[in-house]
Amino acid sequence: MTNVYCWAATHVGLVREQNEDALAVSAAFDLGSEGTWEGQLAGERAWAMVADGMGGHAAGEVASRLAVEVMAPFLTECSSADDLPTALASADWAIRHAMAEEPSLKGMGTTICGILAISNKMSVFNIGDSKIQFWNAGELRQLSEDHVVHGHILTQCLGGSSQGRTLAPCIVTEPLPGDARLLLSSDGLTDLVPDDQIQDILSRSDRPAEELVEAALTAGGHDNITAVVLQFEPS
Rank of each mutant, 00 (worst) to 15 (best):
D21E: 02
D21F: 05
D21P: 04
A22M: 12
A22Q: 13
L23R: 13
S26R: 03
A28Y: 11
A28W: 10
F29H: 15
D30N: 02
D30E: 07
L31E: 13
L31N: 12
L31F: 12
G32C: 05
E34Q: 15
G35V: 01
T36E: 10
T36G: 04
W37F: 00
E38L: 08
Q40C: 06
L41M: 05
L41C: 11
A42G: 05
A42S: 11
G43H: 00
G43D: 06
E44G: 14
E44C: 10
W47M: 06
A48S: 00
A48T: 03
M49T: 07
M49I: 01
M49V: 04
V50Y: 14
D52K: 07
D52F: 03
G53K: 02
G53P: 04
M54D: 10
G56A: 00
G56H: 02
G56S: 01
A59S: 10
A59E: 06
E61A: 08
V62I: 11
S64H: 09
S64N: 11
S64V: 09
R65G: 15
L66E: 10
L66G: 07
E69M: 08
V70F: 06
V70L: 08
V70T: 14
M71T: 04
T76F: 01
T76Q: 14
C78W: 11
C78E: 06
S79I: 10
S80V: 02
A81M: 09
D83V: 00
D83T: 01
P85F: 09
P85I: 01
T86V: 14
D92P: 02
W93Q: 14
A94N: 13
I95P: 07
R96V: 02
R96N: 01
A98K: 00
M99P: 05
M99F: 01
A100P: 02
E101S: 12
E101V: 14
E102T: 15
E102D: 15
S104Q: 13
S104D: 13
K106P: 00
G109A: 05
G109H: 05
T111W: 09
I112G: 11
C113L: 00
L116K: 03
L116I: 08
A117G: 04
I118M: 06
V124W: 10
N126R: 00
N126H: 06
G128M: 12
S130E: 05
K131Q: 07
K131C: 07
K131I: 04
I132V: 02
Q133W: 13
Q133R: 13
F134W: 15
F134T: 10
N136H: 15
G138A: 05
E139T: 15
L140M: 08
L140I: 07
R141V: 14
